[in-house]
Write a protein that binds this DNA or RNA. Structure first.
Lengths: 226, 226, 226, 226
DNA sequence: GATGAATGAGTCTTCATTCAT
DNA sequence: GATGAATGAAGACTCATTCAT
């Protein structure tokens, strides 16, 4: 029955929300199923009606977050008028996502760590799903900027991958640094550095021939296009 | 007696090495003190003669790694002749460090996650120690490159922080992506993108006035110089 | 639901009974939670569903004993017709309590020792609860005996306290002496000595003026009445 | 060599003194051999040159205390001129002993508890040694008081045993009551109650024939003399 | 004789998961 | 479907004792 399915789905989502709170507050290992059940006002056994294991619940929390994030990004990108605005939309989405979840941020690290350890391939797959989503979006936009004459010719896949890594790296620095600087400033600074380049005219002339070709080779021989 | 101290220190270092292996293989939570003791060919109780808790051992492993890393970076930088070579030295050190410890890399994530959760401030402090070391080194070199006319004027502290974050971000992307591309390629690509800039002459002219000032403002209002 | 509560309370009481057996046989420190769980035919984890710690279980055992004792004393005292009979009732209750629990008696010493060491104030409070109960009962009866003309005027609080201490002291002598004499004989002997006095007419005349006043001053300046 | 023996004996006594401090402060179970060795400024291994086990050390501490106590009592009693003064001397010795060791008192309970549990018969034997010493002293003095006409005829062994038990009982009440009253007041009150008796002339006349014979029967059929 | 490094048996306690109601 | 009582595997940590130096 659709009604039943909807009911179960809604309750499941509710449990995920409460689990997210507890996980974020205490961390994955320190959170007990009892904690979460109590927080969600259900019995401990009920949790197992909706999630086979604690690990599955952990994944559900992450999936919920990333689905929200992807949806938000997609909406903003769709609403943006041109490629430049779409780039800004992605950046703003990321900043907002991280800032609104500042206190949940450490849990992301725990999940990444867990994903690399567990036998369960679903974790790493879910992580890559978002990375792929962002990579395709980024590659697409980069190509548009190249076609429009804004950017020089470049390996768009490698560049999108790099951008994605940089984004996570800034977040990491922000969290490990105690969130002591405004996250959005860091993102715009990053954009400026990469967008404009650091080189003075003199320096640029010298290095142009030495580094120019690398921009087109990109990161990986497997993913390099063009 | 120095002999005693040396002996204890050597044994402690040995235990740390074995602990690093087990931690790297199984992860922090899944590793037991018994595992590590067995690996090190000592009794369980012996571990506690050298480390008060499992957590302290974890920190010792991290400290050992980062001390090695800092030492290696410093040596290479000292050996390099000019600023450009020193920049390459840092990059190469990082790449080597991460590649040689590829299988231990996930443990870094666990440590970061742990550092953000534990009451023990020593973890976050040790992390910041390395970040500070790199930030100062990076700011110093950047300033030299500016003074030498290679780089345009820029907030060197913010830039060093960004570089450090980017470095971790690339590592993260590499690890979470299953180490499916050569790490050193990613680092040189990053260097090219940042060093040369992506903008074509046309694009550069338009954005120069819009973004130029941000390069000098940097990330944080507190650390902005010049 | 009352039914649930009753069920849990009954099970808890059952665990206490089994714990009392094991504690009495092996002593507090030598008894393990596993021992007790096995004795009670439950899993080790079940113990912790009913008692947060081994210490809490220890207190529960003591509380159970003393509640039984207080109930038994109260019943007998209520059933006794006059003050003299009530005094006998208390003595008989104590003798019976200790004799029926002869093999558990050493555990009382362990508990007293523990009560004086632990940070948990509940132990000392529970001990004092019984002492207060007996002290009030004793003071009350003593006052009745004074009013009835049997006893000379005396500090009833101090006397009740003394009696209580003497009672424990006899028990102590009995236990440490290997229970080599009948406990009830010791109690009646004590009663005779105190009740009748040891002094011959000659001795009494001489000491009367030297000691008489002390009877009314009692033990403590704070509690001295009349 | 006597010199060696003396040296060992002195060092042993020193270790006992330090052990007594640690045991008194932390309790027997919570004290570690390391604690004691540190307190005594010797190596952990050295402790085992003087005491085979921790238990043996515990006994040595108790033995040291009780030997001191017995010596003190004997000296005072020897110095007292008549039987009445000797009685006071015993009481004063006990009060002083307990008061000077107020903070060590809980350890006595632990020792008693331990003595009743351990397979090692030396504990219970050492306890009985002191009790025998006091019982003989007490019986002796009581007989003198009877012979001198102060006391009525009574089972002196039973009475001495009772007195000893009462003494411990008062101590127990004092310790468990948080030492909230002056110990010496309790002892003199006890002496008054027992020495003078509580009965008024009327009450005494009625009870004399009912209780009188019991005074001569005493506590135990095994130890009753006369 | 003195030492302290090494040891592992021993114990409390936690908690994910199951399953009878 | 919901529950929570029951469970036992698991693990960090302690500490008396030994013994090589």
């Amino acid at each position: 029955m659709p009604a039943d399915v909807d009911f179960k789905a809604a309750k499941r989502a509710d449990l995920v929300t409460h689990a997210a709170e507890v996980f974020a507050r205490r961390g994955y290992h320190a959170s007990t199923m009892q904690d979460i059940a109590t927080q969600a006002n259900v019995g401990k056994g009920t949790m197992y009606e909706y999630f086979r294991t604690k690990e599955e619940l952990f994944l559900a929390v992450y999936d919920s977050w990333m689905s929200d994030f992807e949806r938000a990004v997609q909406e903003r990108v769709d609403a943006a008028s041109d490629a430049m605005a779409k780039v800004d939309a992605i950046r703003d989405s990321a900043v907002e996502f991280y800032e609104r979840r500042a206190h949940q941020a450490p849990l992301l690290l725990e999940l990444w760590a867990h994903a690399l350890r567990t036998d369960n391939p679903a974790f790493i797959e879910r992580i890559r799903q978002t990375r792929t989503f962002l990579a395709q979006l980024g590659a697409n936009l980069t190509q548009q900027l190249i076609d429009a004459g804004w950017f020089v010719d470049i390996d768009v896949d490698a560049f999108a991958l790099l951008e994605s890594g940089i984004s996570d790296g800034i977040f990491l620095a922000w969290v490990l640094g105690g969130m002591s600087f405004p996250l959005n400033r860091a993102y715009t600074f990053r954009q400026s550095v990469i967008g404009l380049g650091l080189l003075s005219p003199t320096g640029r002339a010298v290095l142009e021939q030495r580094l120019g070709s690398k921009l087109q080779k990109g990161v990986s021989p497997y993913t390099s296009s063009k």
